[in-house]
Design a protein around this nucleic acid. Structure first.
Length: 127
RNA sequence: AAAGCAGAUCACCUUAUCGCUUCUGUUUGGGCAGAAGAGGAAAGUCCGGACACCAUAGCACAGUAUAGCGGGUAACGCCCGUCCGUUGUAAAACGAGGACAAGUGCAGCAGAAAGUAUGUACAGGUAAUGCUGUAGUGAAACCAGGUAAACUCUAUGCGGUGCAACGCCAUGUAAACCAGCUUUUGAGGGUUGUGCGCCCAAUGUUGGAGGGUAGGCGGUUUGAUCCUAAUAGUAAUAUUAGGGCUAGAUAAAUGAUAGGGGCUCUGAUUUAGUUAGAGAACAGAAUCCGGCUUAUGAUCUGCUUUUUUU
């Protein structure tokens, strides 16, 4: 049964505390120009994975550009999160764009797909 | 037609699929349905307010901003009108346009001398004397001289911090908070540059629940609001009447993909036209308004100058 391709408020990482914890304790998978930082976590909602996206202010000074890249990454995650099967654990995700040029959607989506596949190999099939 | 000046308007449209945020309806609930969803600059944070809190908020000095005249406005350093000056052939643009008859300072070259000066030559005059005139230098030579993007003076305004303000709620703890009383010292510390003023301390005790951190709600979107018309006014603008509700996110929504249509540019072929390819700027609300400044794609209107044709 395919998971619905949604990405609403409940699926977002919101707390600043969680994000700081994610950066200090999390592992990462990198497929240039996108990097995923993730960590096993526990929260009260029934959702399996909470995610967030981020673009460095250093590489993209204009707010319009940052927003555009974030939207592409959100879209890519939303379309492909069915790749991660149901698990007993809960995770928090953070997608980072480390490139310095403006991407297109056709470049972003396959990279996110690769990252998610690799994540499944590393963390889930080991169990 | 070319070059230029001024002003106004718009910011590709639409369909489908998959999504995001808010509101409304419905459902026990998961959810489902409907409606709405970035800008002219949302930007820079440079001015002016609204609103909130704080005597560390008061008073004086200092400091700082503005500067023809008249008007508009909640207010302004903004806007409108007008005079003067400067630039330009012109349409127009710009303004560092209060006061040197309060005081102090400054002034290249030329010139004897540039402000407590009176030289040289000639002429006049006197008891005598730069006492008077002319020549000569210069933009200016005693004229109440010029200069205030020189100090200064005059008039007017200016307390500070900003919605992470501020109010409330739950969680919950230490040696931390607040209020009253008690005793002692007025030393020291705090503030806006200085002075005055103001505020603060320590011990014990009683009472209250405060503060920090992360979270939620309010503040938070109906307003100096927008549209149309009439009236007053040269205008900025004001008044009246009718109508509208038009984003409220918070690691921060407004997107992605595919198709169709219109626009611009380029190529091919042509009487119109047809067809292929490419392109669509600057840029993303964060308490809210009024301005200014900067970035930027098009379209339209009016005007000026020059040239050509009639």
């Amino acid at each position: 049964m395919p998971m619905k391709a949604t990405f609403n408020k409940k699926e977002k990482v919101k707390s600043k505390k969680e994000i700081d914890f994610l950066f200090s304790e999390g592992k990462s998978i990198s497929k240039y120009p996108i990097r995923l930082v993730y960590k096993k976590s526990t929260f009260e909602d029934t959702i399996k994975i909470k995610a967030a996206v981020s673009v460095s202010k250093r590489n993209f000074k204009k707010a319009v550009d940052r927003n555009f890249i974030k939207r592409l990454m959100r879209e890519g995650y939303r379309k492909n999160k069915y790749l991660v099967p149901n698990t007993t654990h809960q995770f928090t995700f953070m997608f980072l764009y480390s490139g310095k040029k403006m991407p297109e959607y056709a470049q972003v989506e396959p990279k996110i797909k690769e990252i998610l596949q690799k994540f499944v190999e590393q963390e889930i099939e080991l169990k």
